[in-house]
Design a protein around this nucleic acid. Sequence first.
DNA 1: GCCAACGTTGGC
DNA 2: GCCAACGTTGGC
Length: 144
Amino acid sequence: MAYWLFKSEPNAWSWEDQKRKGEAGEEWTGVRNYQARNNMREMKIGDLGFFYHSVKETSVVGVVEVCNTVHPDSTTDDPRWECVDIRAVADIPRPVTLADIKANPRLSDMVLVNNSRLSVQPVSEQEWREICRMGGLKEAPKSA
DNA sequence: GCCAACGTTGGC
DNA sequence: GCCAACGTTGGC
């Protein structure tokens, strides 16, 4: 069971859009970066992730679950690009901003802080619990 | 809107 | 295989 973080610019694909897809979830398309793709290759059904709004809000706003392992990205014919499917699991009661994360020494090793351009990134269990706590989630959501 | 950081492309 | 040029991302 691993933890991840998915970044999206809300103008392109927002947490609201993701929630609208409900239980069925949606393909996480559009990744054109090898490192991010390789992270998706590692994902298993039931892995949990944070949904992060980049650019405008710069905050963690939701929790998602991986509901389909990696497969070709339907938005391109280029066989190099693959993606997983994710579905919304829970709102973060109090969104955790990038400023909050940067201000927390326990999170100083987060990829989000040190490699801001990687759009799909791993999150350690400690980081996962800390952000859940900061966001007002009493306990980290369990996967179905 | 600017710019730093990073990734990719392509000439040599 | 190196590196300059270019494009994109994303924080501020």
